[in-house]
């Protein structure tokens, strides 16, 4: 069997295993929606008639959150526990190419991420009247592909720094939660935000990914190509791929 069809089989197997744990699957999808409802209740929802409402902010913000948790958080945790349990070592003793196994994991994460994008966008449109930006679909798709690739690569990369599965929630959350707060996801970076925090957040990929999605959803904006945003995202993508390919571990740590 060719590598590609082996990778496709892996995606199917991972996907089947994912849905066999309905409680985990349910909260994977419920979690971003809970945040979306909470933020809209806390920060004002959608006053009728306004062109740009808090819901216009939180719909793309929660789409960003969805991609980041489906790709970065889930891959890092799933890979670490598969490594701890010896699944990675077992697979490596078979003729399955290593990249095909990882492609299976990534493919499954991307499927979940895609489904979340649809659910969150639909929720925003139906409940809060935030229109899905069909007219900016190419821009949006490019941003989503870039974000998914970057956060998948970083998820694989961070697993190299997680000593064991028990430590992975703490490490993964510590690396991503603060960024979510300073990167236009959980809260808006505006005039009230200290300048240094704004500058700091621009170093990291979360900010630029979220900003791309905000630009796609904001009816007042005319999104264009900002080379700095894309370059920083691409830099993190390359860094993730490099670290993962150099330091990725298939064996449980002693």
């Amino acid at each position: 069997m060719s590598g590609l069809s082996l990778a496709a089989r892996q995606v199917r197997a991972e996907n089947r295993a994912f849905w066999r744990n309905p409680a985990a699957a349910f909260f994977t999808f419920a979690f971003p929606l809970i945040f979306m409802v909470l933020f809209n209740v806390l920060f004002g929802g959608s006053p009728p008639g306004a062109a740009y409402t808090p819901a216009h902010f939180f719909t793309p913000a929660i789409v960003a959150l969805s991609i980041i948790s489906a790709c970065y958080t889930n891959i890092a945790m799933a890979i670490t526990s598969a490594r701890d349990e010896g699944i990675l070592k077992r697979v490596r003793g078979t003729p399955l190419p290593e990249w095909a196994y990882l492609a299976g994991r990534i493919g499954q994460a991307v499927l979940v991420a895609l489904l979340l994008v649809v659910i969150v966008s639909a929720f925003g449109e139906v409940v809060y009247g935030v229109e899905f930006p069909f007219e900016r679909l190419p821009f949006l798709l490019a941003a989503l592909v870039m974000g998914a690739a970057t956060f998948c690569a970083l998820g694989l990369a961070i697993s190299a720094f997680i000593p064991n599965a028990d430590a992975s929630p703490a490490i993964v959350n510590a690396t991503v939660l603060p960024l979510l707060f300073i990167s236009n996801v959980f809260a808006r970076v505006d005039e009230g935000t200290p300048a240094w925090l704004d500058t700091l957040s621009r170093v990291f990929p979360v900010r630029h990914f979220a900003d791309l999605l905000h630009a796609a959803w904001d009816p007042r904006a005319s999104p264009g190509f900002d080379p700095v945003q894309w370059a920083i995202l691409a830099g993190w993508l390359v860094l993730g791929v490099l670290v993962a390919s150099r330091s990725f571990s298939w064996e449980p740590r002693a």
Partner: peptide
């Protein structure tokens, strides 16, 4: 290969 200890995908 049968290793000393190794896991398997739990939900299949």
């Amino acid at each position: 290969i049968v290793l000393q200890s190794n896991g398997v995908e739990r939900y299949l």
